[in-house]
Simulated assay, not measured.
Amino acid sequence: MPWADGRWLNPPADVREDGTGLVVTTREGSDFWRTTSYGFVHDDGHALLSPFPPGTAVEVSFVADFPELYDQAGVLVRADAENWIKAGIERSDGAPQLGAVVTHGTSDWSLAPVPEWTGREVTVRVSRAGDAVTVRARCGGEPWRMVRLAWLDPAADAHAGPFCCSPLHDGLRVRFTRLATGPADASLH
């Protein structure tokens, strides 16, 4: 899928095409989060979004080093400012973590450490079927890992695509290497 098919929600500090990839540099304080535990709302992360109708899937591949706490990149699925899902890699507890945040009014957060994925190409896949979004991820040619099964209103007019954020600094650089769409996954496992 061509990068030009998407529209930026909160344009980043810099975007440039690099061969077939897209290099994105974040703005300071960029994030997606609603209320839980921290008490703040951030809806200023960078996301390149395209329509995500029921029965489809989106895959995003990327490479980044994630040097600072909460640096993150992956896929954002967005219905509106209060209903969205982000999944990918985020730096927390001193290491890259594979995780997801699901937001329906307030955000939740789940993580699992993947230090061996540092600096390698990661692919995150979101698949929309019925009232569910299935999130999977892998590094290189490894098998897919199930990350999350999350509810999304089947009538929602949703959009999805690559996202990145750096809540505590500016200048996180993420090289997105692939954006693809296709049919939703046939089964959960």
Rank of each mutant, 00 (worst) to 15 (best):
residue 187 S to K: 15
residue 167 P to L: 03
residue 104 H to R: 12
residue 99 G to F: 07
residue 19 G to I: 05
residue 4 A to P: 09
residue 158 A to W: 13
residue 113 P to M: 03
residue 50 S to H: 10
residue 157 D to C: 03
residue 124 V to E: 05
residue 13 A to W: 03
residue 123 T to S: 11
residue 71 D to N: 05
residue 124 V to P: 13
residue 80 D to M: 00
residue 71 D to L: 02
residue 114 V to D: 02
residue 153 D to A: 14
residue 141 G to K: 11
residue 61 S to G: 07
residue 129 A to E: 11
residue 42 H to K: 04
residue 13 A to S: 14
residue 76 L to E: 01
residue 121 E to P: 02
residue 114 V to E: 11
residue 152 L to V: 07
residue 117 W to Y: 05
residue 25 T to A: 08
residue 53 P to N: 07
residue 69 L to G: 03
residue 187 S to R: 15
residue 74 G to W: 00
residue 56 T to W: 08
residue 104 H to C: 11
residue 176 F to G: 02
residue 44 D to S: 13
residue 77 V to G: 00
residue 15 V to L: 15
residue 115 P to G: 13
residue 166 S to G: 02
residue 81 A to D: 06
residue 103 T to I: 04
residue 83 N to W: 00
residue 23 V to F: 06
residue 127 S to G: 06
residue 92 S to Q: 01
residue 24 V to E: 15
residue 163 F to K: 01
residue 184 A to Y: 15
residue 91 R to Q: 07
residue 9 L to N: 13
residue 38 Y to V: 08
residue 179 L to I: 08
residue 11 P to R: 08
residue 184 A to I: 14
residue 5 D to G: 10
residue 98 L to P: 05
residue 34 R to V: 14
residue 165 C to V: 08
residue 182 G to W: 10
residue 20 T to S: 12
residue 68 E to S: 00
residue 38 Y to M: 10
residue 31 D to T: 05
residue 185 D to N: 04
residue 170 D to I: 04
residue 157 D to L: 08
residue 11 P to I: 00
residue 172 L to M: 13
residue 124 V to D: 09
residue 81 A to S: 09
residue 28 E to N: 13
residue 71 D to E: 03
residue 140 G to Q: 10
residue 144 W to G: 15
residue 47 A to N: 06
residue 100 A to H: 07
residue 160 A to Y: 08
residue 44 D to F: 12
residue 22 L to Q: 07
residue 67 P to Y: 06
residue 188 L to E: 02
residue 128 R to E: 09
residue 118 T to W: 14
residue 127 S to D: 14
residue 16 R to H: 12
residue 97 Q to G: 01
residue 81 A to R: 09
residue 115 P to W: 04
residue 84 W to D: 05
residue 125 R to K: 13
residue 97 Q to A: 00
residue 49 L to R: 01
residue 25 T to G: 03
residue 47 A to H: 08
residue 110 S to A: 12
residue 132 A to S: 14
residue 14 D to G: 03
residue 12 P to C: 14
residue 189 H to V: 15
residue 49 L to M: 10
residue 61 S to I: 04
residue 94 G to L: 07
residue 82 E to T: 03
residue 133 V to R: 06
residue 147 V to L: 09
residue 182 G to S: 15
residue 82 E to S: 01
residue 44 D to L: 14
residue 24 V to K: 12
residue 70 Y to C: 03
residue 14 D to Q: 15
residue 18 D to N: 04
residue 90 E to Y: 04
residue 48 L to S: 07
residue 27 R to S: 08
residue 27 R to V: 10
residue 128 R to A: 04
residue 82 E to D: 09
residue 19 G to L: 14
residue 146 M to F: 10
residue 62 F to P: 04
residue 68 E to F: 00
residue 58 V to C: 07
residue 103 T to V: 01
residue 6 G to K: 11
residue 82 E to L: 00
residue 136 R to H: 06
residue 19 G to W: 15
residue 166 S to E: 04
residue 143 P to A: 12
residue 52 F to C: 04
residue 175 R to Q: 15
residue 61 S to V: 00
residue 109 W to R: 05
residue 104 H to N: 09
residue 50 S to R: 15
residue 161 G to M: 06
residue 131 D to Y: 11
residue 55 G to C: 08
residue 30 S to V: 11
residue 63 V to Q: 02
residue 131 D to T: 14
residue 126 V to P: 03
residue 161 G to Y: 01
residue 39 G to M: 11
residue 16 R to L: 14
